[in-house]
Design a protein around this nucleic acid. Sequence first.
DNA 1: ATGCCGCTTATTGTATACGTTGTCACGCGC
DNA 2: GCGCGTGACAACGTATACAATAAGCGGCAT
Lengths: 244, 244
Amino acid sequence: MSQHQDLAGQRASGSRRGKGGDGAERHEVIYRSISDAIIEHRLKPGARLREDALAEVFGISRTGIRKILQRLALEQLVTLTPRRGASVTRPTADEAREVFEARQMVECGLMPEVAQRLDEQSVNALRELSAQEQKALQEGDHSAAIRHSADFHTHIACLAGNATLAEFVERLCFRSSLILAVYGRPGHLGCETHDHEALISLLREGRGQEAATLMGHHLRAVEATLAIVEEDQEAPDLHQIFLN
Amino acid sequence: MSQHQDLAGQRASGSRRGKGGDGAERHEVIYRSISDAIIEHRLKPGARLREDALAEVFGISRTGIRKILQRLALEQLVTLTPRRGASVTRPTADEAREVFEARQMVECGLMPEVAQRLDEQSVNALRELSAQEQKALQEGDHSAAIRHSADFHTHIACLAGNATLAEFVERLCFRSSLILAVYGRPGHLGCETHDHEALISLLREGRGQEAATLMGHHLRAVEATLAIVEEDQEAPDLHQIFLN
DNA sequence: ATGCCGCTTATTGTATACGTTGTCACGCGC
DNA sequence: GCGCGTGACAACGTATACAATAAGCGGCAT
């Protein structure tokens, strides 16, 4: 037993604390903090993420922030431009299409397996997630709703028992959240909980194929709510001028 | 020793820096070097990757190596254990199964789209890849054969026009290479080029569905050549002894 | 002789310092 | 008045130095 109690959770601002180091975990916490903020749209696409600022906020040096930023970059939640720093990724229309196409393929493909493996306990977990999402929606908490929706899809994918594919789906869901932030329309926000509950029912009854079909429609419906118009970004105008 | 042989012909970026070249690109090159070495089995699973050693070999400081190592870790080519450094990932049997299941789903799912989009130029590129693989096989160059085989699968995936899915497939292929290294049997090594060429023909004729079927069989065949037996690693012996 | 304990060493993790580069602003010339 | 060049500043990328930790080893006590 270690005598020094590790109450490392709460650190005010005194940065000079080398001891006690559950450093690795702190990095994980910070990673989650930033990741969550992005997924929940508290950090909007295009927002700049300065290393210094983050280092100060979280009380670690830029080195640690860098590591986290690079991880986020590899997951395509932030964009790292060579000498210009990091910013929250602003997905292109093409990316949006790709992400939903990928989700279509993988999530639908997973349904039969999930239907086969699903047990009562998992059903309850899914229902809980769905309920939370609906609750957040009713309360107008868009951030939480988006988060729970992503959690729902990710969790379903986990139930197929393939960690590799589940992780892929998770990342796709995160990116979807980003896409929603850019191309979403105020009225609709992503998944309708009704679909989610219908999906649970289908899976519970072992009707995997039908669940796959529903998931397909569901994803297509979400995609359809997007206003994917190539808003001319900063550069294109000038490029066209120069090329012609 | 040729430390800085910059094969800078590729990019015509305007920076004319004599010293240091373009740092970012050098990192990319180093990343590729290590990645290639792993994929081609010149670095075997379990091999330790000391930061100091790598830093010295590539003539950069440990900072840069770290970044690269972390990237490789995120792609699951190397395993990073908290205070023990990096080593080439040794995939578990479960991972192997997952990877092939994922490939089954994604690569097969991509076939119809590829069949639809394939043009003559791409066909030639694929044939080239296939030929290279066969040549390497005949020369007994296992490293090159594995590499080209992975390239073939990755390239096909690229042709579906979905960069996100293509990247996923690429990573799955890399991991497959690792799996081959651990569970492969000397006689067989991965893909039979015959399958590859049959696949090309099918795709060329636009028979996407049949191509998907063939791809499915092909992957299953590769998986079947593996000796996925939980070879007791270092610890298990003792554990079993203690438990019984 | 054997098992345990403390020391040494090797290796990673973290922070800081420095160099380079991109951006912005101001001033000059046209 | 407008455009361009130069200079200053700020942010990032890299290297190096330092600290902490785990493993290996030898000595000592029983």
